[in-house]
Write a protein that binds this DNA or RNA. Sequence first.
DNA 1: CTACTTAGTGTATATTTTACACTTTAATTT
DNA 2: AAATTAAAGTGTAAAATATACACTAAGTAG
Lengths: 232, 232
Amino acid sequence: MAKGNLPKLHSDFSVDCVIFGFDDEELKVLLVERNEPPFKAWKAIPGNLVYDQEDIDAAAERVLYELTGLHNIFLEQFYSFGSIDRHPQGRVITVAYYSIIKRNDNGLHPVSGYAKKAYWWPADNIPKLAFDHNEIVDKALQTLRHKISYEPIGFELLPEKFTLTQLQHIYEAILQKRIDKRNFRRKMLSYGLLTELNQKQKGVSHRAASFFKFNKSRYRSLKKKGFIFGLR
Amino acid sequence: MAKGNLPKLHSDFSVDCVIFGFDDEELKVLLVERNEPPFKAWKAIPGNLVYDQEDIDAAAERVLYELTGLHNIFLEQFYSFGSIDRHPQGRVITVAYYSIIKRNDNGLHPVSGYAKKAYWWPADNIPKLAFDHNEIVDKALQTLRHKISYEPIGFELLPEKFTLTQLQHIYEAILQKRIDKRNFRRKMLSYGLLTELNQKQKGVSHRAASFFKFNKSRYRSLKKKGFIFGLR
DNA sequence: CTACTTAGTGTATATTTTACACTTTAATTT
DNA sequence: AAATTAAAGTGTAAAATATACACTAAGTAG
């Protein structure tokens, strides 16, 4: 695996997965503690080498599952990183994915051992990471921030039923700006894709908010006709 | 290189490059004729295996140079394709780039032999291509169509000096819709990024159009402040 | 029953987008 | 040299969208 003096016609490669979550306050990124020599550091979500029998999308799903115990999660490839010297152990090209998950209070259920030491970090305050992982997380963040302006990915961070205030907080956290409550609600409701449920919050010490759900299948059919769901 | 029965920890990989051009009428894609057995077909721009000593971006630039004789061209990675069976000769993951070039009447000056048989095809009428190259070209087109809505990539298809009508034709070709001339001009000029030159077309049998140039450095500084140049 | 906290709502103004048709200029034709 | 042809270049009104802004409603806690 060490770099040879003659060109080799193959390289190792891996998938990396940047995982975003939201805790009702701010956007978070899941980072794992790297304990292997030669140094100890945080790193972005583990890459995994990909095997010959596995599509890269499937490899990314596997990595995500091993870390979180979750299946059927929003997961999208966003860039591949291939500088010669990006990895100290030799040439490793990585195909990077980002994932957006709903954080529930049960926490994560990692399947494999290496994923045990994973913690959420504020997206706007990422520590120094191993290798080129800061670059990867940055690009994932850029992608997420851009994407929310033309696709309804905010809902991926929320449970099935959510309040408009929760949704607004997500847009504010991702777009990094304050949004007017009335204008936000008007805009979101104008698309006709949110259904108000006959349910309200319980146990809150103030007026209870209505729950809504997002009509995903209706969105998909509108999207085919050129409709854009987004907010700048 | 054939698929083994046991997992291998590496795979071959390549870069592919989808090249767009514009001939004052429509958007074109450069395709090369594939003559190697076992079959003959058009394919998207040649992938090339990447060597251990080469960054993937550099490899893409090299491929582009070999095909066109051009350097310093718009070139951007957009997706990686890694299905197990995408290539008949075994597992090859490819990092795909798209490029936008100015077509001048000199034509192309391919450097390497394999690129001699390259022809421009209308982007909306691509023939059946080898491997998964139709998928790759489709995704490149989607990327281009999306990108033009928030970045001034149209200028990459034009010479230094261009008329507003040329520019409009590019937007129409890429966005696949008619645009009102007055509204288009007003919008484009409103950004303050086009400088009208003291030069006009010559030898045209109608009123001669003014030439303009695009102020790229000014655009870059505006972009840093959050400015978006685009058209939907 | 009072205080506290967040949910929920309307309107006026500014900005942006859209739709639309004629005059100007240069070369070519007669 | 006058008429024809072809694309360049230009303004305005209406519609749609985005923005700015402040109070009332409802539920809980004390």
